[in-house]
Design a protein around this nucleic acid. Sequence first.
DNA 1: AATGAATGAGGCTTCATTCAT
DNA 2: AATGAATGAAGCCTCATTCAT
Lengths: 198, 198, 198, 198
Amino acid sequence: MAKYDNLREQILDQARHLLVEKGYINVTMRKVAHLVGCTPTSIYLYFENKDALIHSLIEEGMDILHQKIKECLAAESDSAAQFKRMCHSFLEFGFTNPEYYVVMFQLPTDEMVPYPAEKYRRARSNLQQFADVLHQARGEKQPTIDPLVDATMVWSLLHGATSLYLAQRIDARIPKELFLTRTVDYAASMLNPIHQSS
Amino acid sequence: MAKYDNLREQILDQARHLLVEKGYINVTMRKVAHLVGCTPTSIYLYFENKDALIHSLIEEGMDILHQKIKECLAAESDSAAQFKRMCHSFLEFGFTNPEYYVVMFQLPTDEMVPYPAEKYRRARSNLQQFADVLHQARGEKQPTIDPLVDATMVWSLLHGATSLYLAQRIDARIPKELFLTRTVDYAASMLNPIHQSS
Amino acid sequence: MAKYDNLREQILDQARHLLVEKGYINVTMRKVAHLVGCTPTSIYLYFENKDALIHSLIEEGMDILHQKIKECLAAESDSAAQFKRMCHSFLEFGFTNPEYYVVMFQLPTDEMVPYPAEKYRRARSNLQQFADVLHQARGEKQPTIDPLVDATMVWSLLHGATSLYLAQRIDARIPKELFLTRTVDYAASMLNPIHQSS
Amino acid sequence: MAKYDNLREQILDQARHLLVEKGYINVTMRKVAHLVGCTPTSIYLYFENKDALIHSLIEEGMDILHQKIKECLAAESDSAAQFKRMCHSFLEFGFTNPEYYVVMFQLPTDEMVPYPAEKYRRARSNLQQFADVLHQARGEKQPTIDPLVDATMVWSLLHGATSLYLAQRIDARIPKELFLTRTVDYAASMLNPIHQSS
DNA sequence: AATGAATGAGGCTTCATTCAT
DNA sequence: AATGAATGAAGCCTCATTCAT
């Protein structure tokens, strides 16, 4: 029992590790097994096939992020505060859990990892819920501006920031914490009106 | 000579095509050769190996983007206008050239496609130059705020927007053009001061 | 004990079932165990290995056929009648027990399922005994013609008819019963002299 | 060119050899390659996949048998003579070409080797044509008896005889030639009326 | 009496690459 | 300038089997 969970988790760990360190195409049953120190066959004792393994990875991440976001809602009563906290949480989640972030948001899922549509909806809802809070906070002040577009742009910002950070394309002179808080500020500026394009 | 360039370009074309349509894992020498109508062996007459082929793809893209950005500088005299135009150009480049964008910014190049450091520097400079203009426009008005951070955030926004768009994760109800201009507006808001984090 | 036999028989049942429904390649310890509802390991409590399992199947079939043929001898006193009844029984055995027939006569046993020579002799004797009756019936009337050859030909006919029937290569317009009785008639024609080859 | 055909034929040869000697389940790309003395990969230069290899084997056999039967028709003018000659040819084909016979008539094609329906029809037509001649010869003398049933029984006999012979289940004391001619005689007895079942 | 955990061998297939021509 | 022939490594996966419990 202990051993069961142990090996299963080792497999997940090493798969995650490979994914982040070497990219998806380097996540092979053989390589994972090698890192774990078991036979490729053994992996099939815990996962039906490679897809199932990847899906487990994705779901793990979804759960964690979901939990984090729920905590943000509970921690604050003000919509704007909730929003900012959520932005921060999202970034922090990505920054500190590259293994999950990559698998959740950067996998070219279309062709590579056929993922049950139902589960995808859940994945999106995670971000949708995220967007909803912006709605609320924005809605109170700016009912005229389409909040869907703005939410999408906030999402773009957060996703882009995380992606570049994880790809180590952020200038080394910028401290992580600074980048993080300033990005949240930039996102929070969405709570206020934007100047129309000239 | 004409034939030489012809085949070489056909190879690049089909490789790009495969990359976008079927994903990186489906870019194989065999499949490229099949699409071109030549032998896999023939590809090696023009590219040392698969990595070299991918790198050529990347460089092609870098050149095109570089050209586009240079044109923005020439087209406007005002820094702010240059900046907005560049943002727009960058987005449009990504939106209309997914083949290049994917290979340039979304390939987990680290280990997947070992890329000579020297070439990477050139790649970065492309975006650096992009950031420089923000420097100028911002610098004139807000010399006190570290422009490097803000430039990075703009880049994050543009990269995130493009990535989500290409991954078809933008809500279908949002027209492409609207998304594009609004993102530019959001980026342009960087030209003005941001409210400090509370 | 009851449980012992129960599981053992379930294993044989499902192995037979798999053999007929899905073909020999689909008779795997895993699949048998799955159908039975036990572990692959458990099968090894009752059968030394896969070969032993297959052999048990073969022997089961041999016993049943043996019994059937013995009954034919008891049911009739006339040699010719015995012979016809045996032909009929053999065909019916094959038609109604494809699971056994396939494993008994259509498995390329030579190398696929190494079968102890001693057991093979017993298998042959089953058919030999079958041939003996022809001997008797024929012998009485045509002592000059080698009966071994004719017996072999009858066997060929019966085996061919059964094989084609089980492979569903008999024209669908021919009713099973008609095919069966006519084949027996054809076999019975062996009881009479055959015209020499011209 | 010479080498091309050479390797392709070596592959077919060894595949056929394995098939007869060790049974279908032992025909693996690895084993064939090993016997030929090449890499498994090389097989894929000549055959799209394993199925294609097996199909080639089947078609080879079909062609040869088809040719043989056509010759029988040409060699004789009398229907009865044609029929007997065809029986003999069929048996001889099977006896001397076990590689082809096994693959053509003894492969559990349903599950193991998905074979294009169209090609199967061709395979059957080979035997159908065979049956037609019996029709003719029979038709002249016995128009009242359903010739389809009798043809099927002849086919059963020939198929059974060949199968048992190839499985080496024919008593060693019976010379091949005797068995062959006597089987033809037995088949030829179909040209005459059969006594009804009592 | 039964199983959970594990494995080595091998199944089919595709890859990037080379070498002689 | 191009290719035909070939390969070793590796991809995913399933097999029969064992061993400790």
